[in-house]
């Protein structure tokens, strides 16, 4: 049973002023639960676009994306937001934490949107921050954390809503080697122990080395899909 099915996905950017750009061109990929996959390719190859389409942040020009058998294209924008909140976790290259909230509040934020009780939020945010090794920095604001620590908070935040899978767009691009290694170890551990699906878009060799499946994309086309 696939958790994600991508069928003939096409995304063309056409602002009617310049030449249309085909960012994703007839992509067909399936993901199973518990995968630790990396989508790799040079800059402008369509990795981020593919991730955005998977996350429902962008509309495909044609093709289908099914998540747990549910067609994303059939959801209206409100249903899509709700779907994302309950099913997809995001980790961004620039961390994108809310600067005015503490690490714990950042993790609790999505649970608050989900309407979870304070007790449940407290418990899960503590567990997650401890799991990413930040049990002692829960009350620190993002500005007081290093890049690696901020990205770990972002991972904890992505996991807070108990999503079906996590989309991580260049999560290590701004991190040094040590922070990258720590972060990847944490994500791999969560992937193995909690069977959470991770899909990365990256050109970081360290991420590629850890991934158990590597999908290479060039000019919007999947040129290689290799499982290890």
């Amino acid at each position: 049973m696939n958790i994600i099915e991508i069928k003939d996905l096409v995304k063309i950017y056409d602002d009617k002023k310049t030449v249309p750009v085909t960012a994703v061109n007839g992509v067909n990929i399936n993901f199973k639960p518990g995968e630790f996959a990396a989508i790799v390719g040079p800059s402008g190859s369509g990795k981020t676009t593919l991730l955005n389409l998977l996350g429902g942040l962008d509309e495909p020009t044609s093709g289908e994306i099914l998540i747990d058998g549910k067609q994303m294209g059939n959801l209206n924008s409100r249903q899509k937001i709700d779907f994302r909140m309950h099913n997809i976790g995001f980790v961004f290259q620039a961390y994108n934490l809310i600067p005015v909230l503490t690490a714990k509040e950042n993790v609790e934020f999505i649970m608050h949107l989900q309407g979870q009780s304070k007790k449940a939020r407290d418990k899960r945010s503590q567990e997650l921050l401890e799991a990413v090794g930040l049990g002692d920095r829960m009350n620190a604001r993002p500005g007081k954390l290093s890049g690696g620590q901020q990205q770990r908070v972002a991972v904890a935040r992505a996991l807070a809503s108990k999503p079906k899978f996590i989309l991580a767009d260049e999560p290590t691009a701004n991190l040094d080697s040590k922070s990258t290694e720590t972060l990847l170890d944490i994500m791999e551990k969560l992937n193995i122990e909690e069977n959470i699906t991770f899909i990365f878009s990256t050109h970081d060799a360290r991420v590629v080395n850890k991934a158990r499946r590597v999908i290479t994309i060039e000019d919007g086309v999947v040129v290689e899909d290799k499982e290890r």
């Binding site: 996350g55 942040l57 924008s77 409100r78 937001i81 709700d82 994302r84 909140m85 309950h86 995001f90 961004f92 620039a94 994108n96 809310i98 600067p99 934020f109 999505i110 949107l113 989900q114 935040r157 809503s161």
Partner: peptide
């Protein structure tokens, strides 16, 4: 803008 985009991406409704 970026932060608002993130909020919407993670599931914050337009109303919120």
């Amino acid at each position: 803008g970026k932060e608002i985009g993130m909020l919407m991406a993670v599931g914050m409704s337009k109303l919120r």
